[in-house]
Amino acid sequence: MTALLILNYDVTDPQRLDVYREAAAPVLLGPDRGELLASTDKTVHLGEGGGSAGGTHTVVLRFRDIEQARAVYDSADYQDLLDERLAATVPFAAMIVPELRP
Rank of each mutant, 00 (worst) to 15 (best):
M1P: 10
M1C: 06
M1N: 08
T2Y: 03
I6W: 00
N8E: 15
Y9D: 11
Y9A: 07
Y9R: 13
V11S: 05
V11H: 06
T12Y: 05
D13I: 04
D13L: 00
P14E: 02
P14T: 07
Q15W: 06
R16Y: 04
L17N: 10
L17G: 05
D18N: 12
Y20S: 01
Y20V: 03
R21C: 02
E22S: 05
A23D: 09
A25H: 02
P26T: 05
V27W: 03
V27T: 09
L28V: 12
L28I: 14
L28C: 06
L29V: 11
L29K: 05
G30P: 10
G30L: 10
P31A: 11
P31V: 08
R33A: 15
L36V: 14
L36K: 08
L37M: 03
L37C: 06
S39I: 12
S39W: 15
T40H: 06
D41E: 11
K42Q: 15
T43P: 01
T43D: 01
T43V: 11
V44N: 05
H45L: 05
L46T: 15
L46C: 04
G47E: 11
E48N: 06
G49E: 10
G49L: 13
G49K: 08
G50Q: 08
G50C: 01
G50P: 06
G50W: 02
G50M: 10
G50N: 07
G51W: 09
G51L: 07
G51P: 05
S52W: 04
S52M: 01
S52D: 14
A53D: 07
G54C: 04
T56I: 12
H57V: 14
T58N: 01
T58I: 12
V59I: 12
V60G: 00
L61V: 09
L61Y: 14
R62L: 09
R64D: 10
I66C: 01
I66E: 10
I66V: 10
Q68Y: 02
A69G: 06
A69Q: 05
R70E: 13
A71G: 07
A71D: 14
A71V: 11
A71P: 09
V72G: 03
Y73M: 08
D74C: 06
D74H: 14
D74T: 14
S75D: 07
Y78T: 02
Q79R: 15
Q79G: 02
D80Y: 08
D80F: 04
D80H: 12
L81P: 03
L82M: 03
L82T: 13
L82V: 11
D83Y: 15
E84M: 10
E84F: 00
R85M: 03
L86M: 10
V90P: 00
F92N: 07
A93S: 15
A93L: 14
A94E: 09
A94G: 14
M95I: 14
M95R: 09
M95H: 06
V97C: 01
V97G: 04
P98D: 13
E99N: 07
R101T: 15
